[in-house]
Structure formats: C-alpha cells, structure tokens
Simulated scan of single mutants.
Amino acid sequence: MTTVSPLYRTMRDALHSLDDTVPGKFEITREGIVHDMMAPSRPHEFTVAQVSRRLERVMPDDLLAHTGEPDVESASEGVMRHPDVMVIPWTEMEGDGSFDPRTLLAAIEVVSRSNPDNDWVGKLRDYPLLGIPVYAIFDPRTGSGAVFSDIHPTPEGPRYATRKDFFYGEDVTIADWTIPSEDLPRYA
C-alpha cells in the first residue's frame, strides 16, 4: 500500500480547489508548491511544439511525444510535475488521473524565462526521484541545453549520472531518438 503524507494530500487538495481560478501552472515538489504565474511565451510554446513534432517523426508509432495534460505524479514521493513534453506509450493515454512517472521514457522541458531554476534545479532533482530515465532541457535564454540519463543512487537521493550538453544547431539524442535543434527560437 502506498503511503501519502498528509502535507502532500493537503497541497494536492489546495491545487484542485484553485483549478481554473488562479492563472499560471502549479506543481508540487518535496519543498512545497511551485507556481509559475507567467503564461508561456510564443518562443517557449514554439520550442515545445517543434521538439514534440521532431520526436514524433523519428519515434515508433506506438509512442507519443505528449504536450498536454495530465500531470506526472508520485503521491508516495510527494511530487507532482508537468513536463512540457512527455515521451510515453500511446496506451498510457487510456484511463483517468495523473500519469505514472515510471511509464515515461523521457521528459523534456523548455526553460521558462520567469523561473529557470524550476527546470535546471528542481526538476533535475525530482525527475530521477520519480524514475524518469531521460531528462532533456532546452534553454531558449542561452540557445543551449543538456540531456541527463543513467539514474544512480547518491546520499541525497537518486540523480542522473550522465549529462550531455548541446548548443542549438546540433543534433540532440533523447533516449533512442536523435532530433535536430536548428531553427529553435531564442528569447529576445
């Protein structure tokens, strides 16, 4: 049986009560609630769409580079996140509730202008904890990014052992698929 902390349950209930009433995106980490108040910019959303489309061109038909709802949640770890792109089997779209993070093959984030530490620090800590085997970050602020893989245990908890940096214009390998990163927008 999965144990869910009362604090996590309270945060989750609070977020449900705020649905559609408070602008922005909410996520839950072990440190508390993350609220990104800014609506994603066109360069952010264009990058998300391009990465998703480019992945789907090279992945097998039974996989999806999903950019929508729902969240990825591990109540036992007290973490609920919403990746910009999730590589999952199509069969995971069936049913209700949050996605089980153990079903993701990769999570991809496009760094937001308003809260870059959420992607570079918080999610870099949370995604290996959730068991997501590959985490890719595209950063329109710098025209660069990194792909993290090979989860290993550390005294602070699971972490990615391998980091492969890239610059926009180079090919990027995410799990088993390589996509171009040319022509992705940068923040002005």
Results as ranks from 00 to 15, higher is better:
residue 13 D to Q: 15
residue 160 Y to D: 05
residue 54 R to M: 01
residue 111 V to L: 07
residue 16 H to Q: 15
residue 181 S to N: 06
residue 144 S to H: 07
residue 146 A to M: 13
residue 53 R to T: 13
residue 21 T to L: 15
residue 137 I to Q: 04
residue 5 S to M: 11
residue 52 S to I: 03
residue 61 D to Y: 04
residue 66 H to W: 15
residue 78 G to H: 07
residue 120 W to M: 10
residue 140 P to I: 01
residue 183 D to G: 07
residue 159 R to E: 15
residue 153 P to L: 11
residue 61 D to W: 04
residue 80 M to H: 00
residue 101 P to G: 02
residue 99 F to R: 04
residue 61 D to K: 11
residue 68 G to F: 11
residue 14 A to K: 13
residue 161 A to W: 09
residue 183 D to S: 13
residue 79 V to R: 08
residue 68 G to S: 11
residue 45 E to S: 12
residue 98 S to E: 07
residue 66 H to S: 13
residue 58 V to N: 05
residue 75 A to S: 13
residue 62 D to Q: 10
residue 10 T to R: 15
residue 136 A to H: 01
residue 35 H to Y: 09
residue 119 D to F: 06
residue 170 E to R: 06
residue 52 S to N: 06
residue 115 N to P: 01
residue 31 E to W: 06
residue 131 G to K: 09
residue 62 D to T: 12
residue 150 D to H: 14
residue 117 D to H: 08
residue 183 D to W: 06
residue 90 W to V: 12
residue 42 R to A: 13
residue 137 I to W: 03
residue 17 S to L: 14
residue 18 L to Y: 12
residue 90 W to D: 06
residue 57 R to L: 11
residue 106 A to Q: 02
residue 127 Y to T: 00
residue 21 T to N: 08
residue 109 E to I: 04
residue 67 T to Q: 03
residue 171 D to L: 10
residue 34 V to A: 08
residue 63 L to E: 06
residue 48 V to E: 01
residue 25 K to V: 12
residue 106 A to L: 05
residue 69 E to A: 15
residue 94 E to C: 04
residue 153 P to D: 15
residue 143 G to M: 07
residue 175 A to L: 10
residue 114 S to G: 10
residue 117 D to A: 12
residue 62 D to I: 04
residue 4 V to P: 07
residue 94 E to P: 00
residue 59 M to R: 05
residue 1 M to Y: 12
residue 99 F to Y: 15
residue 101 P to R: 03
residue 106 A to R: 00
residue 48 V to T: 13
residue 138 F to T: 03
residue 118 N to I: 07
residue 168 Y to N: 03
residue 188 A to R: 13
residue 93 M to N: 03
residue 175 A to Q: 12
residue 163 R to W: 06
residue 24 G to H: 08
residue 136 A to F: 02
residue 110 V to F: 00
residue 151 I to N: 01
residue 175 A to F: 11
residue 177 W to N: 01
residue 61 D to A: 15
residue 2 T to H: 12
residue 178 T to W: 07
residue 9 R to V: 11
residue 178 T to H: 04
residue 147 V to S: 03
residue 69 E to N: 14
residue 28 I to L: 06
residue 25 K to E: 15
residue 56 E to P: 01
residue 46 F to M: 09
residue 30 R to K: 12
residue 60 P to G: 11
residue 142 T to R: 14
residue 177 W to R: 01
residue 134 V to S: 01
residue 151 I to W: 03
residue 144 S to N: 12
residue 112 S to G: 08
residue 133 P to K: 03
residue 35 H to M: 08
residue 161 A to C: 12
residue 115 N to Y: 08
residue 51 V to A: 02
residue 137 I to S: 03
residue 35 H to L: 13
residue 71 D to E: 10
residue 96 D to G: 05
residue 186 R to W: 01
residue 7 L to H: 13
